[in-house]
Nucleic acid binder design. Structure first.
Lengths: 117, 117
DNA sequence: TCCCGGTATTCAGTCTTGCTATGTACCGGT
DNA sequence: ACCGGTACATAGCAAGACTGAATACCGGGA
């Protein structure tokens, strides 16, 4: 994907990851590969780990180290109450933005005189 | 609005402004007040001007100075062919992102066992 | 044995972009 | 003369995504 995707992910990627964790706990590598499966083929691994560090420091997730059968121990993240609140706020913000952008899209596809001022 | 909105605007605000210009040409001050009317009450004026400078330098818009009856001359921006392409790409990127995020929202609202692995 | 590839995490440095704060300039009304 | 609304510009800051590299654990093949 292009630069546009990168910039558009700012602010939304955090919500995406919180939403993934809301479904069930997961560790960084797992999140990255699940995102790739879902079509986000170009999200850098380092980006996800950095994001996880941030949300952990903000206390939005609980962390548990779990030994892996093939590699270093996994850090399994699970959403806690704070994270749930931030996720809820994310959905509100997203809804607001998506609604307005859809309006704009509609305005272009179906232009009309605007009598309201 | 909160920090989430700010971060989410990164990457989308450019598309929003291009979309506004696709409807009809406009100048900076006008774009700002139109955005405020549409609910983006906290978008800083400086942000819009900086964005307009960027898209002008990238050649996405044509500019025309028009004298104003009440203030300094207006810089009226109109979308050109390049800008149209970038806007089209924006809609594709937005569509991709919105689709996946809606999927995630749906997955949380309607959780189910996933038998696929 | 030694190396390689897959798993798993971390970090320093860079770039883009929105915000803050401020400054400039033009105009009409009081 | 001053003030408020119109209109544009910019320097410095903060946040977040990317690049590239390093570290570490494990199994299998030459």
């Amino acid at each position: 994907m292009g630069k546009q995707t990168t910039e558009m992910l700012k602010g939304t990627l955090e919500g995406i990851v919180l939403a993934i964790l809301a479904v069930r706990p997961a560790y960084g590598y797992e999140i990255t590969s699940r995102l790739r499966e879902q079509g986000f083929v170009d999200i850098a691994e380092g980006t996800i780990y950095a994001l996880l560090v941030r949300i952990e420091q903000r206390g939005l997730v609980d962390v548990q180290k779990v030994p892996s059968e093939k590699g270093p121990p996994r850090k399994v993240y699970s959403l806690n109450a704070s994270g749930g609140e931030v996720l809820a706020e994310f959905w509100r913000t997203w809804g607001f933005l998506a609604e307005r952008i859809e309006q704009l899209h509609h305005a272009i596809e179906h232009p009309r005189e605007e009598g309201e001022h």
